[in-house]
Computed example of a mutant assay.
Amino acid sequence: MIPRLKEHDRALFEAVARLSVPSLDAPLRRASDFADFSKPWFLTAGALVLFGGARERRAAVTGLSAIGATSLLVNQPLKRLTSERSRPDRAALGVPVERWVKMPTSRSFPSGHSASAAAFAVSVGRLLPALRLPLRAAASVVAFSRVYTGVHYPSDVLVGVTIGALIGHLAARLAERRHRVRQH
């Protein structure tokens, strides 16, 4: 079964590589680069702290906590456990050079960028529903950019998003529970 999944994963990667939308090349390359070290999420959290009230500050702390837990899980044990999963050979698989970002040195599986983006978007979006759609849209752009720029296979991104979303959901639930306890 695994070889068949790898075939589908590679075929989907190649289909994205064949997409000819030059107007997306620079914006998705910039989005992928900008997401290094969770910059969009740290900046968003900072804005929530500076310009929001107690609820926004709580959401910012929850979102950053979700990123921390996700990064710790994804970038340490999971990437080490899946050490046989190398990055895509984007030249051989047809990703146009105009899309390329610097190739990370870590293993490919799962995508840390996608995991952190989902963790922040899901946790903050649950606590601040008005931000749910824009945060999830931004996280989706980051996740797709990782395949589009050729640094991850689609399954790397899918698993990263799933892990991040689960941790983000858990972080938000814990924050809600803690807030309810403090109110009583």
Score class of each variant (00 low, 15 high):
residue 97 V to T: 13
residue 97 V to S: 09
residue 98 E to V: 06
residue 98 E to I: 00
residue 99 R to W: 00
residue 99 R to H: 03
residue 100 W to H: 15
residue 100 W to R: 04
residue 100 W to C: 01
residue 100 W to M: 10
residue 102 K to Q: 14
residue 102 K to G: 08
residue 103 M to F: 08
residue 103 M to E: 15
residue 104 P to K: 08
residue 104 P to D: 03
residue 104 P to V: 06
residue 104 P to M: 04
residue 105 T to I: 13
residue 105 T to A: 15
residue 106 S to T: 14
residue 106 S to G: 11
residue 106 S to R: 11
residue 107 R to C: 13
residue 107 R to G: 14
residue 109 F to H: 07
residue 109 F to P: 05
residue 110 P to I: 07
residue 110 P to Y: 12
residue 110 P to S: 02
residue 112 G to F: 09
residue 112 G to A: 15
residue 112 G to T: 11
residue 113 H to I: 12
residue 113 H to F: 04
residue 114 S to H: 05
residue 115 A to H: 01
residue 115 A to D: 10
residue 116 S to C: 14
residue 116 S to N: 15
residue 116 S to V: 08
residue 118 A to P: 04
residue 119 A to R: 08
residue 119 A to D: 03
residue 120 F to M: 09
residue 120 F to D: 02
residue 121 A to N: 12
residue 121 A to V: 07
residue 122 V to E: 10
residue 122 V to D: 00
residue 123 S to F: 11
residue 123 S to C: 05
residue 125 G to F: 12
residue 125 G to I: 12
residue 125 G to E: 13
residue 125 G to N: 12
residue 126 R to P: 03
residue 126 R to Q: 15
residue 126 R to M: 14
residue 126 R to I: 14
residue 126 R to E: 15
residue 127 L to C: 04
residue 127 L to E: 09
residue 128 L to G: 06
residue 129 P to I: 01
residue 129 P to F: 04
residue 129 P to A: 04
residue 129 P to K: 00
residue 129 P to R: 13
residue 130 A to V: 09
residue 130 A to F: 04
residue 130 A to N: 00
residue 130 A to G: 07
residue 130 A to R: 12
residue 131 L to Y: 06
residue 131 L to R: 06
residue 132 R to W: 10
residue 132 R to Y: 02
residue 133 L to R: 15
residue 134 P to I: 07
residue 134 P to L: 05
residue 134 P to H: 06
residue 134 P to D: 01
residue 135 L to A: 12
residue 135 L to C: 11
residue 135 L to P: 09
residue 136 R to Y: 05
residue 136 R to T: 10
residue 136 R to W: 12
residue 136 R to M: 14
residue 137 A to Y: 11
residue 137 A to K: 01
residue 137 A to E: 07
residue 137 A to D: 00
residue 138 A to S: 13
residue 139 A to R: 11
residue 139 A to L: 12
residue 139 A to G: 13
residue 139 A to T: 09
residue 139 A to P: 06
residue 140 S to C: 07
residue 140 S to T: 15
residue 141 V to M: 03
residue 141 V to D: 02
residue 141 V to G: 01
residue 141 V to K: 09
residue 142 V to R: 06
residue 143 A to S: 12
residue 143 A to D: 10
residue 143 A to E: 05
residue 143 A to L: 13
residue 143 A to T: 13
residue 144 F to V: 09
residue 144 F to I: 07
residue 144 F to L: 13
residue 145 S to H: 03
residue 146 R to I: 09
residue 146 R to W: 10
residue 147 V to R: 04
residue 147 V to G: 04
residue 147 V to I: 14
residue 147 V to L: 07
residue 148 Y to S: 04
residue 149 T to Y: 08
residue 149 T to G: 06
residue 150 G to Q: 01
residue 150 G to A: 10
residue 150 G to L: 08
residue 151 V to I: 15
residue 151 V to G: 07
residue 152 H to N: 12
residue 153 Y to N: 08
residue 153 Y to E: 02
residue 154 P to K: 02
residue 154 P to L: 02
residue 154 P to W: 01
residue 155 S to Q: 12
residue 155 S to L: 15
residue 155 S to T: 14
residue 155 S to K: 09
residue 155 S to M: 14
residue 155 S to N: 09
residue 156 D to H: 00
residue 157 V to L: 08
residue 157 V to G: 07
